[in-house]
Computed example of a mutant assay.
Amino acid sequence: MVWRILPHATCCRATDKLFLLDLRQDRYFCVPEKLAATMLAWLECGFSCAPPKAVNLLLERSRTLRTGDPEATNALREHIAIPEHIDELARARAATSASGLATGAIASRAVAISVTGYRKRQIAGFPLD
Rank of each mutant, 00 (worst) to 15 (best):
H8I: 02
P32A: 05
D129R: 02
D26Y: 02
T103P: 03
A36Y: 05
A72P: 07
W3Y: 10
E88N: 11
R63N: 09
W42I: 04
C11D: 07
I123Y: 08
R27K: 14
I5G: 03
V111H: 14
R121H: 00
L6D: 01
A81S: 12
S99Q: 03
C45W: 14
E71D: 02
S114E: 10
E71Y: 12
R63C: 01
K34E: 12
E84M: 05
A98W: 14
T103E: 14
R4H: 01
N56I: 05
K53L: 07
P51Q: 02
S108D: 04
A124E: 13
F29S: 09
A50S: 13
R27Y: 03
L76R: 11
I123F: 05
S108Q: 13
A72V: 02
P32R: 06
L23A: 14
L18V: 04
A37E: 13
A112Y: 12
K53Q: 08
H85Q: 14
V111E: 12
L58A: 00
I80W: 05
C30Q: 07
A75S: 13
A14D: 00
V55W: 04
L20D: 04
I86Q: 12
L57K: 03
I80E: 12
G100Q: 13
T73N: 04
G68L: 09
L65G: 02
L6T: 00
A92S: 11
E78Y: 07
E33G: 08
L57R: 10
S108Y: 11
R109G: 10
S97I: 15
L76F: 06
S114K: 09
R66N: 10
Q122M: 11
A102W: 00
A9Y: 01
A102Y: 00
A36T: 08
F126K: 03
E60W: 07
S97N: 08
L43F: 09
I5F: 06
L18K: 06
R77T: 08
I86N: 13
K120P: 13
A124F: 00
E84V: 06
I106D: 10
A90C: 15
G104H: 06
R91N: 13
R91M: 05
A50G: 10
G68D: 11
G117Q: 09
L89V: 10
R91C: 12
L18T: 11
C30R: 08
C11M: 11
L21G: 02
E60N: 07
C49N: 03
A72F: 07
A81D: 11
A90Q: 12
L59D: 12
A50N: 05
H79Q: 15
A14P: 01
A124S: 11
A50D: 13
L6G: 06
A94C: 13
E33I: 04
T116H: 06
K17M: 02
A90G: 04
M39R: 04
Q25H: 03
Y28P: 00
L128F: 10
Y118N: 04
T15Q: 13
L58E: 04
R77Q: 14
R13T: 02
F47N: 00
A54N: 01
F19T: 04
D22S: 02
G104K: 06
I5H: 01
A37I: 08
C30V: 13
